[in-house]
Amino acid sequence: MMKIATAAYPLDPVQTWDAYAAKLEEWVADAAGQGADLLVFPEYGAMELAILDGPEAAGDLERSLHAVSRWLPEVDNLHSELAARYGVHICAASAPVFDLDHGTRPVNRARLFTPQGGCGVQDKQIMTRFEREDWDVIPGGPLRLFDTALGRIGILICYDVEFPLLARALSDADVILAPSCTEALAGYSRVRIGAMARALETQCVVAMASTVGDAAWCPAVDENTGMGGIFGPPDTGFPPTGVIAEGVLNKPGWTFAEIRPAAVAAVRVEGVVLNRAHWTEQPERAEKAINLSLR
């Protein structure tokens, strides 16, 4: 059994590093205290760190990227310490990272920390229009599947979960994490629908985290709509709606669900339908499509 906690996380204008560290520990302690094994923070939740370089840096799209990226070594050390102290796995809020392996522009990177001191990184694969056209954040390294004490975990950051072939590359995952940052209800809905579709196709659990609330002091993430959600295939061993747990729209806090990796393995063999196994039949059937003109 695994208990997942997925965040609806508000971005706060933290004025000092100690204030940020205290906030993060409060969130981790809360989830761990309720028995969570795996904590999922949202996409770009780390942008609140930009204010530590001053309001001018936080208020400028380019300067905010550099400000947050500079704090990441300390942020990662803190997450590693908290994962060990509280005995939990943590998917840290994603952040822009200037990684020389990818040139002069930043990637959007999530990091997965284990209680034993392990750390894996996952970069976003497909960028939104804002990331491409306004922010110049670029795709990073390849998709990875993490073999952990909790099971096999993959990460698809926000927009990535809207693309089925990315999830197919992670089709051996027991759980796919979908940290997200969406401005409007339509954006939240797209990511949620994508998460539920990926759970259906891959016959696994998908855990979605969101940023929530206003952060006018940081224009990159100034408006946020969402909630936590944990989804599975609407099939044997899972709720008929596919919704294992969900939070309240725009209400900060954790959403919890207990899941069994064994249920994922079972539905892939004994489900009413076998979407994951039948995936490979699509190319053959698609090639036989016939174009008809009806008048």
Rank of each mutant, 00 (worst) to 15 (best):
K3W: 07
K3C: 09
L11S: 01
T16C: 14
W17R: 13
W17S: 01
D18A: 15
Y20C: 09
A21Y: 08
A22E: 15
L24K: 07
E25N: 11
W27L: 12
W27I: 02
G33Y: 01
Q34I: 02
L39M: 04
V40F: 01
P42W: 05
E43L: 04
Y44P: 00
L52D: 12
P55G: 12
E56D: 14
A58K: 02
D60N: 14
R63Q: 14
W71R: 11
W71T: 06
L78G: 01
L78N: 03
L78P: 05
S80T: 15
S80Q: 15
E81V: 13
L82P: 04
L82Y: 06
A83K: 12
Y86C: 10
Y86T: 12
Y86K: 07
V88L: 07
I90W: 11
C91W: 00
F98N: 05
F98L: 10
D99P: 10
T104G: 14
N108S: 12
N108K: 07
R111P: 03
C119I: 15
V121C: 13
I126R: 13
F130Q: 07
D134L: 11
W135K: 10
I138V: 15
G141L: 08
D147N: 14
G151M: 05
I155V: 14
Y159W: 09
V161P: 04
F163L: 09
R168I: 02
S171A: 09
D172I: 01
L177P: 04
S180A: 15
C181R: 10
G194L: 05
A195Q: 00
A197W: 12
R198C: 11
A199E: 02
V206M: 06
A209K: 03
T211D: 03
G213C: 08
A215N: 06
P219T: 08
A220R: 01
E223I: 12
G226Y: 04
G226H: 02
P233A: 05
P234T: 03
T236Y: 12
P240C: 11
P240Y: 06
V243A: 05
G247F: 13
G247T: 02
V248C: 03
P252W: 06
I259W: 00
P261Q: 07
V264N: 05
R268M: 02
V269Y: 02
E270V: 04
E270F: 07
V272Q: 11
A277I: 15
A277S: 14
W279P: 00
P283A: 12
P283Y: 04
E284W: 03
E284Q: 13
R285I: 11
E287R: 14
